[in-house]
Write a protein that binds this DNA or RNA. Sequence first.
DNA 1: CTGAAAGCGCTAACAC
DNA 2: GTGTTAGCGCTTTCAG
Lengths: 350, 350
Amino acid sequence: MSRKVTIADIARELNLTGATVSRALNNRPGTSESTRRLVQATAERMRYQRDRIAYSLRSGRSHIIGVIIPSAEINFFGSVIHGIENMANQHGYNVLIYQSNELPAFERKGIATFLGTRVDGILASIAKETTDFRHYLEVKERGLPLVFFDRANDSLHIPSVVVDDFKGAWYATEHLVHQGYRRIAHIAGQQHLKIFRDRLEGYKAALAANNLPVDDTLIYYGNVSIEAGRQAVRHLLAQARPPDAVFAVEDFSALGAIKELKDRQVSIPGEFGVIGFANEAFGEHITPSLSSIDQQTVQMGKEAFKLLLEMIEGGAGQVQHHTKSRIILEPVPVFRQSSLRRPLHGGQQP
Amino acid sequence: MSRKVTIADIARELNLTGATVSRALNNRPGTSESTRRLVQATAERMRYQRDRIAYSLRSGRSHIIGVIIPSAEINFFGSVIHGIENMANQHGYNVLIYQSNELPAFERKGIATFLGTRVDGILASIAKETTDFRHYLEVKERGLPLVFFDRANDSLHIPSVVVDDFKGAWYATEHLVHQGYRRIAHIAGQQHLKIFRDRLEGYKAALAANNLPVDDTLIYYGNVSIEAGRQAVRHLLAQARPPDAVFAVEDFSALGAIKELKDRQVSIPGEFGVIGFANEAFGEHITPSLSSIDQQTVQMGKEAFKLLLEMIEGGAGQVQHHTKSRIILEPVPVFRQSSLRRPLHGGQQP
DNA sequence: CTGAAAGCGCTAACAC
DNA sequence: GTGTTAGCGCTTTCAG
């Protein structure tokens, strides 16, 4: 085990002192051009590598950011992490992962270890079970930069990066209208989550804007699962005036709906149109392929890191005023077979 | 920004000295029961939190492990990370993520930053483009615990956790035999990757063991993609004596094969059986649903961490001898519609 | 332009 | 049992 080479080693080698070597390595003023070059060359030769722990202790900066996600197993978050890590890496930061498993207790533990590790900032997506947000507010009060992504909570006044769920739902619903569907149902998600509420509102608004009535009997409240999608279809088709299309709050409900419709020999998209939300990987491969709304996951990760970085570098105090503290990404519709019964072209409007 | 509370603060509060407080907090011998309790209570009250940076600098241990993966966007790795992080968390460790993006240059950079951060160990899955393994050998020589997962390289003699690709391929192939298929083709992957070579060998061995000839014209060498799967089917069906089933080296090729077969109105599994490898999420949802071999991703992450932990705690030197340095996980067949043309039951053997 | 010295917060040796 | 001291590796005053 070859011992690590330290600044002291280099200093000894060159008959200098640690201070000078440090200055030279960091290109700080107060060293002659020649010694700086000499020092840097020897450092290279000796394979010197700055000890970030010591650096952190001294400087108070770790160049590490902490990221709290519900689970790395969920595709969506893997994709966001991808965006975060790539951007962080470009800026000399590393990424510490912590999974909440959707439980507030883990969130608190994650924040605690992050504080101990002196991360320079925290990115977080709130756990489903979290209703008390004090641990997040404490982070803010400590002056540690914090940015939410995807699952945010506006009332906390903490910067966030989210996708525009309202608009995405609007796009999805309006697309079904343009495709000639007239009774459009909605499979809704748990209403205590803002993202699902927003989608419901977007759905309603798009109907209204297109002079279609909002019929509460066409809204099915489920729990975001394949089974909920199946149940929704059973429920909707049993009605006196059944719908001819459905916008599902996310892709798994949409998948359940498609499965149930196929079981009942309802042709998609001919008799019935389906569109989901999230653009999960499977949507492209099922039959019929699933139309959906893409949430720009990688971009979300990148924007979240950039916002955090501004806060870190700007000094957390001022950021609230100087930087845009709420970034809303544009959802991107992805139209596939499940909702297309007429050719797509530019002039879709009536 | 309320300043951090340190051991010194507690000591001052109690008219003690830092050393005693430290001992008490860490339940180390040499403190009276009463003071220990007192100290711990005050620490709690003052919301003391141990500074891990200082701890690390002093102790040389960071309780952080570094994980190098090709990309967090790939499902498989997200799932492994899930296993790693959960297990690490249980043992008081945190996980630093670094993506290689399949490039050795990033791997080297990742290792360098990990060394700087004094991670206690490294878990890595080798990038596809990596052919020179010196950076990994250096980690080993420095005595820093290192474990490969999934993408390993035996010749380096570095501990690893992998799934038994040979056996998985054997299971897949033999299953097709048991289902009555007699001319079984294989869509192979790039042969410079060991995992793909092993699957090819498992396929051949299973055929031989079942007294079926290994016919080289039934092996298609592709590049692991949907398109390769389609090409393979086109190629195979054009032959004088076409196959009646195919074992694809992974699920995307299998998916391509299914798409092409459906386009050609070949009935699955009646006329033609298909099985893949990896048990990707989409396989369950396509039509027909895809049979595959599960790679135990979460388990892989957990085992990898446990092995690394043994090395960390045991002292890296001895581990080579004391611990099982190569863990081979049992692949788990998942039989679905694409390969089932007779009912499954216990007595499958002829 | 360079050196000496202090200190980030913690723990481990060695006193007492 | 508790205190004193030193030091992990680095940066940053303050002197020279």
